[in-house]
Nucleic acid binder design. Structure first.
Ligand SMILES: [Mn+2]
Ligand SMILES: [Mn+2]
Ligand SMILES: [Mn+2]
Ligand SMILES: [Mn+2]
Lengths: 219, 219
DNA sequence: ATAAATTTTTAGGTAAGACTAAAAAAATAT
DNA sequence: ATATTTTTTTAGTCTTACCTAAAAATTTAT
């Protein structure tokens, strides 16, 4: 069955909110991400349920059915492949591509995404370190951990980010914290949990706990 | 002012119908290309006129204003650049790209189309030989002429097509009539104006007047 | 010049996807 | 256990872009 742009965006949002929990997703949570009102969300959830893409019962929150999940993953696949294209082929920075990919992810053509994947050399992570779902809808787990959970004195490598916001990514770029950067944790301040770290053996810098939470690393 | 997808498509259609005439474009002509009803077209023309993109007076047909023309040309520019991308970079055939470009042409990002243009090496023709409007909205004239207007015994080179339809392009491909093909007109049959031609010095073939009209060549 | 045919516009409706205000249910506090 | 607060749903509108049927204007034929 064909999906409208609005439906695709809702399914993607429900998918994202389901990732960290096995509870149903609340109407308000969806409304916030969709930048719309709860009443509009209720309308849409009823429609998505009729189409068989979500399980929805009044006041019980919503969850994706397998077919709804499949649609969400195909949109995420397209989003991430286009992000790779924008960075690798067109020379964008990682903080500039999300909004454009939000549009490109809705282009409908099986063959297009197939050929794009091939053109890009079948990447398995996007420019933010997020796994790209496969053609048959399997997504690798996020195997990296937040920098905030690494112990003092440890070395690690920046593999991704948990947040796409341009302001955040721009801050990282300014601090030379790019994908692949080598990070050494010199000290964790117990007062505010901020960290003193060394990036690629340069002079030490400070980052807040909030920043460290959104940086994904491998030891 | 922002343009909706429907508005962009209408402006593009009006542009296309205006190319061959300096008369206003009729409601019915627009309706046919838009695959919609005349009543819907009237509605939209009134809206486009309010936004200042067309001059419209009841029963008098419609024509683009300079700002309407500018929008139309920017959509056409995007359409053709994406077609080049699809053929040159992703390996599509020229008969497969139109529908996908119809979607891609509505992606909104100045920088994207700028970078795409650069990535493609600033092409000035699309895979069908059509000129790509420049960034500031100038489009080169179609300098090629229909094969149907070439005299007997003359040599020419296939530079483009006047029709994008997949069935037509597939026929050309089957006949080895690709961009750059060398064509010699052996004979024009006065009965039905069909032509006997030689393509790249291969065995002679026949093409109808209808086909010849839609093949653009340079002598 | 008038009649007939065609084209175009108007009038009135529909579906999608949003909104506000009010009602109902659920969660939290006393 | 009841009252209060918060969340969610319902009811009623709005806008965009489409539709059909009918009316009006224009064009073509006689
Ligand atoms: Mn993104
Ligand atoms: Mn990403
Ligand atoms: Mn095309
Ligand atoms: Mn083309």
């Amino acid at each position: 069955m064909a999906t409208s742009l609005a439906e695709e965006n809702y399914l993607k949002i429900i998918y994202r909110l389901s990732e960290n929990t096995d509870q149903g997703v609340s109407t308000n949570a969806v409304a916030e991400l969709a930048q719309t009102k709860a009443a509009s969300v209720t309308d849409m959830l009823q429609k998505l349920a009729e189409k068989g893409w979500v399980i929805y019962q009044k006041y019980q929150g919503v969850r994706l059915t397998p077919s709804g999940q499949k649609i969400a993953l195909s949109i995420i696949r397209k989003h991430r492949l286009w992000e790779v294209f924008l960075v690798e082929k067109l020379g964008y920075n990682w903080d500039e591509v999300h909004e454009i990919a939000e549009q490109l992810e809705h282009i409908e053509s099986e063959s297009l995404i197939q050929k794009l994947d091939e053109f890009l050399g079948f990447p398995d992570r996007d420019p933010h370190g997020d796994p790209i779902p496969t053609r048959d809808g399997k997504m690798a787990d996020q195997i990296y951990q937040p920098l905030s959970e690494i112990k003092e004195k440890m070395d690690c490598v920046l593999m991704g980010v948990a947040k796409d916001a341009a302001v955040f990514l721009q801050l990282l770029t300014k601090l030379d914290l790019n994908l692949g950067a080598k990070i050494t944790i010199l000290e964790i301040n117990s007062f505010d949990r901020s960290l003193q770290i060394q990036v690629n053996s340069a002079a030490p810098i400070f980052v807040s706990h909030e920043v460290a939470k959104n940086i994904l690393v491998k030891a």
